[in-house]
């Protein structure tokens, strides 16, 4: 870690603390990426699981090669959301881990940097999953997904859902049967984000002349921003005893 004196406030300005926190965030994110790369089972499982959801939907709704835009948007988002949830469950250590997180918490590392490093790795994992699932979805259903606006909607939704998922994964970390509890906490709270993301993608797929205003994208951005702020605000409460 580049700085280790974050806790001595009088000597440091806000700017220096923020700079140190960013440095720590980057270092922690790199550590998370290395750790995810070493144990590849999480990303692999996420991809396979979300592909299976696409497959199940195509049978359940008997989807022909050109499904309506709103159906396709719903199918893809459902696959992404459930695949992503598998990743969130692994973000915080379970009993039997080697105590990496506890070790980090002994050091005066910035708690927000720690929490946002988890957000970061979840965003990366979900994006990696989408890089495989979306092209396959586009291929299977003849969908013109390669428009900047559609990709932007997927990215904003992914950012928001990863933030929410990381936050609630942290908040359920003390619970028994946490992996059962996480979806119950996460899905209702994500309703606005899910509605906005599905609607934005579906409208971009359906609307022939592209829409001029994008209220759904704005809503997704606002909701993501709100939970960014909440995550930042509660980071100390999440990790400290």
């Amino acid at each position: 870690m580049a700085t280790s004196h974050v806790d001595s406030p009088p000597a440091l300005s806000t700017q220096m603390i923020a700079g140190a926190a960013l440095q720590q965030w980057w270092a922690l994110l790199q550590a998370e990426i290395r750790s995810a790369w070493r144990g590849r089972e999480t990303p692999v499982t996420m991809v396979v699981f979300s592909l299976l959801i696409v497959l199940i939907f195509s049978f359940a709704f008997d989807l022909h090669p050109n499904p309506p835009g709103d159906v396709l948007s719903g199918v893809l988002w459902t696959a992404i959301i459930f695949g992503g949830m598998l990743g969130f469950q692994r973000a915080f250590p379970v009993a039997g881990d080697r105590g990496e997180l506890e070790g980090l918490l002994v050091s005066p590392v910035n708690r927000s940097a720690l929490l946002f490093a988890k957000v970061g790795i979840n965003v990366i994992l979900m994006c990696a999953m989408e890089l495989i699932v979306l092209p396959i979805g586009a291929l299977l259903f003849n969908a013109p997904l390669w428009k900047p606006l559609i990709l932007a909607s997927f990215f904003v939704g992914t950012l928001g859902f990863s933030t929410l998922g990381t936050l609630f994964s942290a908040l359920s970390a003390e619970a028994r049967a946490r992996e059962l509890l996480l979806p119950l906490l996460l899905l209702p709270i994500s309703v606005p984000l899910i509605i906005a993301s599905v609607e934005e993608v579906s409208q971009s797929l359906v609307a022939q002349p592209p829409a001029l205003s994008h209220p759904w994208l704005q809503l997704a951005c606002a909701y993501t921003g709100l939970f960014f702020f909440i995550t930042l605000a509660v980071a100390d409460n999440v990790f400290d005893r």
């Binding site: 609630f168 942290a170 908040l171 359920s172 970390a173 003390e174 619970a175 028994r176 049967a177 946490r178 509890l181 119950l184 906490l185 899905l187 209702p188 709270i189 509660v234 409460n237 999440v238 400290d240 005893r241």
Partner: peptide, 27 residues
């Protein structure tokens, strides 16, 4: 209704000490 149920399940699956009540308060 679902959010409230999830809150109560969180309470049911965690102990009343340590960090758990604070997590529940945030939820």
């Amino acid at each position: 209704w679902f959010m409230d149920l999830a809150y109560l399940l969180l309470r049911a699956y965690t102990a009343d000490e340590g960090r758990a009540p604070r997590y529940a308060a945030i939820v």
